[in-house]
Design a protein around this nucleic acid. Structure first.
Length: 290
DNA sequence: CCCCAGTCCTGCGGGC
DNA sequence: TGCCCGCAGGACTGGG
């Protein structure tokens, strides 16, 4: 489930294509239902082959390959998509291939095929994303804006964190991890969070995401997620709550609880993140020193 | 406007 | 043992 750390790892993994020229761009014969590729094969080829890559960026959970002339290729992995320099794990789910003038290939591989490969002109890209459908990146947003964008929502904080219009990049896995690191009950309403809650939440968001990027993302037990060199990530070994129902909380040993919010699983520690227990995380005032 | 439920898709694991 | 159903959760859509 590529979220910010996984997509950032994909981005970094193919950075070496910057300055290279595309020599081929083609849908790969795949027995599965084809993913969305836009525009059609001929126009896609015509507008990409011969162009040089000027940058590889990230837009929330999408990889953006910028081309000279202003066009951009958006690789959107959704649930099971991979962006690879290495040979794909299977040919069965290989969807798209780019070839470069140094002889290397970048593959888009996608088991479930919910993802897409799209080409946008500068104008189309602006129309698609500059209208607020994507909020500021979770690693770029400032503390004040973070609170301002989330606080008015009447939703539960876990659900609000998944809204890419508020802040871009957080998905289901990291939302649970971030809230645990911030000692905040995932069911609390945004409107009810206090200033020090936002302080801890913002710090936890940065800490969890930056650490997860360092570990090159999370490869869950299904093994799907891989970096560009087809290597598993390492952050799954650092998970405190996600997919750890009934396991002891690493902080207090209370069994982790699984609930469902907005049709998605949430994992949390009822002790560390219990309602009204947020003082657990606050520094103890000096006079109690023993 | 705000929010939620349903949809897409495939592979896996639980239950019988 | 084998089969079937439900679940996983990205982003989008339709409806209340």
């Amino acid at each position: 489930m590529p979220e910010l750390p996984e997509v950032e790892t994909m981005r970094r993994g193919i950075l070496s294509i910057v300055g290279k020229r595309i020599t081929a761009a083609e849908r790969v014969p795949c027995p599965r239902k084809p993913i969305l590729v836009a525009p059609g094969p001929a126009a896609f080829r015509k507008r990409t082959v011969g162009r040089k890559v000027t940058a590889v960026d990230r837009l929330g959970k999408r990889v953006v390959v910028r081309l000279e002339g202003g066009d951009s290729i958006i690789l959107e992995p959704r649930m099971t998509g991979l962006v690879l320099l290495a040979d794909p794990p299977t040919t069965e789910h290989l969807r798209f291939r780019f070839e470069f003038d140094d002889g290397r290939n970048v593959y888009y591989w996608d088991r479930r095929g919910l993802g897409s490969v799209r080409l946008y002109s500068e104008k189309e890209l602006a129309q698609r994303y500059d209208d607020g459908t994507l909020g500021p990146d979770a690693l770029a947003v400032e503390r004040a804006a973070f609170e301002t964008r989330l606080k008015p929502s009447r939703r539960e904080i876990k659900v609000a964190l998944l809204d890419q219009r508020a802040v871009a990049g957080i998905g289901n896995l990291y939302a649970s991890e971030i809230l645990h690191a911030a000692f905040i009950d995932p069911r609390r309403r945004c409107t009810r969070l206090k200033s020090d809650d936002w302080d801890r939440l913002f710090a936890a968001m940065r800490d969890v995401l930056l650490t997860a990027v360092k570990y090159e993302g999370s490869t869950l037990s299904d093994g799907t997620y891989r970096n560009a060199l087809n290597k598993a990530g390492g952050y799954q070994n650092q998970h405190r709550v996600y997919d750890r129902e009934k396991s002891p909380c690493g902080t207090c040993t209370t069994p982790i609880v699984r609930i469902v919010q907005a049709q998605r699983a949430t994992f949390y520690c009822p002790t560390c993140q219990g309602r009204g227990k947020q003082s657990f995380a606050k520094p103890i005032s000096g006079k109690r020193k023993k």
